[in-house]
Computed example of a mutant assay.
Amino acid sequence: MAVTDVTAIFSSTSCKFINKYYQLVSAGNAMLKNDDSLRLQLLRFPLIVGVVFIHAYTLGADPSTAIIGASHANEFVQTLISQELARCAVPLFFLISGYLFFYGTTWSTEKYKSKIQSRISTLLIPFLFWNILVLLLFAAAQSHPKTALFFSGQMTLISDYRISDYFIAIFGIVHYPASYQFWFIRDLMVLALLAPLIYQLLTKVPAIFLATLLTLWILRFGGDASKSALFFILGAYVGIKQYSLFLLDKQAKWMFPLYIAMAIVNSIYPETCFYPYVHKIGIMLGLPSFLYLTKILSRSTALKTALVSMGKASFFVFATHEPLLTVIRKISYKMLQPQHDAEILTIYFLSVVVTVACCSALFFLLNRIVPRFTRMIAGGR
């Protein structure tokens, strides 16, 4: 199918689809409704746990944790959780980020400057802190005789870096940043800087713009960049129109079971040539499905209180879960040498639980001892 055909389809259906269902939702005012704001808060911690599960996936990813006794059952469980369900986490984060950046905003040069200045404290400062910290830790490990051998032949010694090498390593110019999970924050900063251009394109040629981004993502052009741009800008479109991000709640009642069914089928047959495309259709169904689940979560006072409280630690867990997760997993495999599904899956789940628990506990401890510093490295959260 040609890009022009995709554009035509998107123009005649997707934008009309959004506009149609918007009529079912109250437009509200320039501020988020209290209910919408609460439901977005409920998502923060579960989505971060989803990110940790993505990085906990071990099938074929790490020779040091080779799963000798892995069976189809183990592969199914890890694929379903890490490669299907959890894969909605990052698109949702970009969708929400784009939505909040543009929602209720009357654009001007001053407003743009104000938003960029606020992102210096919420994005740039923690981004620099964590990436520089990782470089310092790597440099210390490379200089110590007992740990230097782990870096032999794998990378240039940090002590030999030129100024340009530090810049490339911190910002991830040609690869991931030093703290690799921060590619998300890097892309978010770039998209924030491009906000005026994004706004102009979304107000003048929204169908063509969104269709182009959708096509690039489906055809896998641009890697993570196409995913970042599509979902941030889709969220921006919803925000500019001042639609509710939960406008598809009614439809999500049937989308959710369909999404789960697709995720299960994909997890059983991940090697088919159609998998990448069916997987992405699943993600598009998964986004409104997970947004809808917050409506159910908000009905439980205890669960609502716990998730809002744990949501404060989300950024810190995101920043610190690696390399802790990898260390826990490698030590577990070295000590236990699992051979059977029960042992392998126990390590898989427990490595996530222990990592999230340790990072969360450290956040609340630091937040009590040095609250200002903790807020700074956690983006003011």
Rank of each mutant, 00 (worst) to 15 (best):
L24V: 07
I240E: 00
Y259M: 08
E84F: 00
L219W: 13
L214Q: 03
S179F: 07
L59V: 14
L123M: 13
K113Y: 13
A192E: 07
V77N: 02
Y269T: 08
T212P: 03
K280G: 06
F209T: 06
P126W: 06
Y292K: 04
F363D: 02
A8L: 11
G172E: 00
L213C: 06
V327C: 01
L38T: 11
Q242T: 12
L213G: 02
V205F: 05
I68V: 11
S114E: 14
I18N: 01
L230W: 06
T122C: 07
M189E: 08
E322T: 15
A178S: 15
I268T: 10
G239I: 07
L202A: 04
I54K: 03
L80P: 01
A192K: 07
Q83A: 04
Q142N: 03
M284K: 00
S228D: 09
P338T: 07
I67W: 09
Y292S: 05
T105A: 09
I96H: 06
H175N: 15
L258A: 11
V205E: 04
A319G: 15
Y161V: 15
S244D: 03
I369Q: 13
L258T: 12
F76A: 01
S300F: 11
L43M: 04
S108R: 05
I240Y: 00
A306D: 07
L245E: 03
F315K: 02
S143H: 12
S114W: 11
L365F: 14
Y333R: 08
L365C: 14
G380L: 03
G222S: 03
L287D: 02
A141M: 10
G379M: 06
L188F: 05
I208K: 02
K280W: 08
W130D: 09
T105D: 03
I54Y: 01
K280N: 12
Y333H: 12
L291S: 02
V352K: 02
I120P: 10
F76G: 01
L38P: 05
V77I: 15
E75H: 15
D35S: 09
E110C: 10
S118I: 10
I283K: 04
P323I: 08
A378N: 15
L214F: 12
F231P: 06
V370R: 07
R372W: 12
Q83L: 11
D62R: 13
S114N: 13
A56P: 08
I168W: 14
F363Y: 15
T7N: 05
G222F: 05
L100E: 04
P177H: 03
I120K: 13
V205K: 01
C359F: 08
S309Q: 00
T58I: 14
Q78N: 15
D224S: 14
P46V: 00
A211H: 01
L38Q: 09
